[in-house]
Amino acid sequence: MISKKVILTGSFGVGKTSLFNKFVYSKFSDKYLTTIGVKVNKKVIKVGGEEMSILLWDIAGEVSQDKVPVSYFLGASGIIYVFDLTRAVTTKNMKEDIEYLRRLLPNGVIKIVGNKSDLVGQDIIEKVIAELALPCDLVTSAKTGENVEELFTIIGEELLVA
């Protein structure tokens, strides 16, 4: 079976752990619990008729990505950069962060994801996305599960051909 290491990263409080828990355990909690380092788990998904093991790394949120230990990115094939649709401050360093991550993983698949869509209306989502420095790949809600499975299927499909 193909195995791919995927990293969830972004500022703190954007919902990385909630996405991790929703994807791996199908669970969600409103309670905020900080991540201080890294949690790793895996889930097998079907991509293009094949099984793929996604080894998901949920790493501690940092305002700037250059503060994350470089060793966490070792062997990674994909990165999910998460921001909070309700907190503009979480998109402030997006451009620099993505440039930094691209330098770390020149051939990796990087997806930009706006989370917590359940907390805002479509008008606000559109406004936030329009103001981003880089295009947003997907809008998710770990609470409702909106686009969570789709996110990993999309990244899995791209990793398969990468």
């Binding site: 991540t35 380092g37 949690k39 790793v40 966490y72 062997g75």
Partner: peptide, 20 residues
């Protein structure tokens, strides 16, 4: 796979704060 590629003169690979 990456760990097995370490060389004798490679710096130590350190992964801090691993939770459970």
């Amino acid at each position: 796979n990456q760990v097995l590629l370490l060389e004798m003169d490679s710096p130590e690979l350190f992964l801090p704060k691993i939770q459970a």
